[in-house]
Simulated scan of single mutants.
Amino acid sequence: MTVTIREARDSDFFPWLSLYEGYASERGVDLTEQRALQLWTWLSDPGHPESALVALDESGEVAGFVHFHAFPRPLLGETGYFVDAIHSGDDSVAQELFGAVREAAAAHGATVIRWTQADGESLPAVLTDAGGEASSSAYFELQTAAQPA
């Protein structure tokens, strides 16, 4: 499938939402309207660190998305990119999306791209086949008293 990759636009909301609902469902997350709108607000704000690219198929329909953000690497004085979500029903589309993130990372001087995998989660082959290696770092999570927006 030939795809075009570009930044998400306001007109992409409903096709993106349909795909994002599938992404959330696959991960066992109850995607509320409030959560979806909060994320879309972030993705639509050029000042927010979270970014989104969409893949358009030959007919111009949204066929996949990737969400990512830059993060500082203070000890090394570098920047990295973190892929928060990548989703498409077609591995070749996911590969194109990941390739676009790699290009953006290189263009902005990011020296690493990271992503996480939950126990039992099946990631798109593009992530596991991209030449990445398991990190020597363990990530921990602590819930705070803050209430989600």
Rank of each mutant, 00 (worst) to 15 (best):
W42R: 14
W42V: 02
W42T: 08
W42Q: 14
L43C: 04
L43S: 05
S44A: 12
S44D: 03
S44R: 14
S44N: 10
G47R: 10
H48V: 06
P49K: 07
E50W: 13
E50I: 12
E50Y: 15
E50T: 14
E50D: 14
E50R: 15
S51Q: 12
S51W: 01
S51M: 10
A52D: 01
A52I: 00
A52S: 08
L53Y: 14
L53I: 10
V54A: 00
V54F: 03
V54M: 01
V54C: 08
A55S: 08
L56Q: 05
L56N: 03
D57P: 01
D57G: 06
D57A: 03
D57E: 07
E58P: 00
S59F: 07
S59I: 00
G60P: 01
G60V: 00
G60Q: 01
E61S: 13
E61K: 13
V62L: 00
V62P: 01
V62H: 04
A63G: 04
A63V: 03
G64F: 09
F65Q: 09
F65E: 00
F65L: 11
F65D: 04
V66A: 13
V66G: 11
V66S: 11
V66W: 03
H67T: 12
H67L: 15
F68D: 03
F68K: 10
F68C: 08
F68P: 11
A70N: 00
A70K: 00
A70I: 00
F71G: 08
P72R: 06
R73G: 04
R73H: 09
R73T: 10
R73I: 13
P74E: 11
L75A: 14
L76N: 15
G77H: 07
E78T: 05
T79C: 11
T79K: 14
G80C: 09
G80K: 10
Y81E: 09
F82C: 08
F82H: 14
V83I: 15
V83E: 02
V83D: 05
V83T: 10
A85Q: 11
A85G: 14
A85F: 14
A85N: 15
A85W: 12
I86W: 09
I86K: 07
I86Y: 04
H87L: 06
H87M: 05
S88M: 08
S88E: 05
S88K: 04
G89E: 12
G89Y: 06
G89F: 06
G89L: 10
D90G: 05
D90S: 09
D90Y: 14
D91Y: 03
D91E: 15
S92L: 13
S92N: 13
S92W: 04
V93E: 07
V93G: 00
V93D: 02
A94R: 10
Q95P: 00
Q95G: 10
Q95M: 03
Q95Y: 01
L97I: 09
L97N: 12
L97D: 13
L97S: 10
F98R: 05
F98Q: 06
G99H: 05
G99D: 11
A100E: 06
A100H: 01
V101P: 07
V101C: 04
V101F: 09
E103I: 13
A104G: 03
A105V: 02
A105M: 04
A105P: 07
A106R: 13
A107W: 02
A107Q: 12
H108I: 00
H108A: 15
H108R: 11
G109I: 09
